[in-house]
Design a binder for these strands. Sequence first.
DNA 1: TTGTAAGCGTTATCAT
DNA 2: ATGATAACGCTTACAA
Lengths: 346, 346
Amino acid sequence: MRSNSKTNSWEASRPVKLVDIAKLANVSIATVSRSLAGSDRVSNDTRDRVIFAAEKLGYRANRHAVSLRKQRSRVILVMIPDFANHNFAQLLIHMDRAAHRAGYEVMIAHTGDDTLQADSLADELFAGGIAGIILTSSYCPPRVRSLLLSGKQLPVVRTLSPTGRDERITSVQIDEIAAADEIVTHLVEQGHRRIAHLAGEKTQLVAMQREEGWRRSIDRAGLKDAGVIYRGFRVEDGRAAARELVEGEDLPDAVFIASDSAAFGFVSELRLLGVSVPDQIAVAGFDDVSFSELFTPPLTTVHLPRQAMAERAVDTLVAIIEGGEPEGYSFIPHRLVVRESSFRHG
Amino acid sequence: MRSNSKTNSWEASRPVKLVDIAKLANVSIATVSRSLAGSDRVSNDTRDRVIFAAEKLGYRANRHAVSLRKQRSRVILVMIPDFANHNFAQLLIHMDRAAHRAGYEVMIAHTGDDTLQADSLADELFAGGIAGIILTSSYCPPRVRSLLLSGKQLPVVRTLSPTGRDERITSVQIDEIAAADEIVTHLVEQGHRRIAHLAGEKTQLVAMQREEGWRRSIDRAGLKDAGVIYRGFRVEDGRAAARELVEGEDLPDAVFIASDSAAFGFVSELRLLGVSVPDQIAVAGFDDVSFSELFTPPLTTVHLPRQAMAERAVDTLVAIIEGGEPEGYSFIPHRLVVRESSFRHG
DNA sequence: TTGTAAGCGTTATCAT
DNA sequence: ATGATAACGCTTACAA
């Protein structure tokens, strides 16, 4: 048990409660509550007096009392695998804003290494502690997953990361396959012929979809499979892939890399190995994080519409929470960003 | 008012409550509560039966009921000016972890453009909604500030950003002046003579302290003031400064830039203008965000010990919340990171 | 060792 | 239009 001394060093002045306002305004607490809630069953005069008193005392409702009584929380849990990744950080800004607009607060659960804490937070969905959950990776807390699979509708929405049809999670995403297809087609149009792919891990749906897009594009162009390296989305994965590629027979003309972070590592390691981008190998990434345009060379990539996804995800979730019908899937348009890293060499 | 239909599309199965466990285990609610709390005033047999029942039903305590009854929340509010900035994103990861370790949850308030929402959240400190506040910028919510200034002790800690002595906020920070001094001294030792400074805004304490460090270093070395440009900490500020500098008389040997982000913009814009770093101008930044080493050229900078600061800030706050004595200031050691951007040209 | 009951601050139902 | 009062789910004296 945690120490629970009664002598807090910060003398906690007693919070202002309804009863304090009631006394000051000379009405009952019921009337105070109604006035503050903007009910029309109060005389204008009384309401004004109450509101004045409330402001004078600096009243702030106790969220726990309200949530307990109303049996409904105004907290949305956002499950994030990695804060440090720009994708998630930016998503968070926009979710926070959208949530506030709708009258909700955002709480974060980090699903990084250890999901226990996060799962426990998510379970509060069933205890009324939180109103809904936004998933941003392929991860889904076990209890939520099993209920979802049993056909139950829950206030749970996934965004950023794609959702398999059989997962039954309301989803806000881009068309990953089409996006990958488009950017690889851009490489083809630049004149590149041997286009390899640095993919994510084979177990990840998002990686599989981006690979599928790459494959469709080279098939359509009648190009030969120049090889796939399965690694991951992090900087280090890109570095490792670069070393592997340089050790191999002959270099491809271009590489489509499934994430910008990996692309940074890839290009950076190639430079160390004396291979220059795009002169010797052209590169295209995926995500368009803020550093992509500052990178040398500036990275050609797919821009993830993070703001639109975040807002749509929140709005969808709020709609479900407040009794609407979940829509299943909704797709957000993506955008190609062509920069120097993909330019034809020579 | 928000629509509040009673027919939620997700049939909310009634949450499991203590009374459900009580029935299943054939004991009173009080005994259930005691068992789950690990009280020693319960027989082992009963406790086991209760815990078994609780797990079987998938019980999760209602946080609002607990907080209301215990008159103490387990939520820490972290006020962040900008999620997208790596500094804050990383800080958040570590705070989240440290908070969970101590049994708290983290809630985020974005103090970006509009502080109203954030202030309102912060005010919950006085209504019992949150247990304490961590500030990460110079911003401090008005009500908190005025109470602090009146000499009151509050569970409020600032980190990352320095605190003025007169602010009376418990603070976890690095020695900004010393750090700036050291990195400028490194530039001096590289042989640079005309060392300019790209500072933040004049109104910001952190900018003033870094400028002070720069000034001390060049004074000690007996160098002339090669000029200060006051802009800001963002990429765009760095770009603008680069243009201003190139338009001026003659270029300095080196520039100490008060933030890595601004340094990215500065170097990037210089490249566009045909000035190369570090060949024509050496550059040193401040922060050591994750891109700093991927940047071209890799950036010499001061590493902010984000993890240590985050953990110390949380621990300090928790100590105050739980009745300890606030320590005032505590300093975390920083570290110089020397990379190519500061190398002597020629 | 266990049960009974009061109460945390708020909202909502029922009177008046 | 307003006031009394019963919940909301939980913890914790106090009783047994």
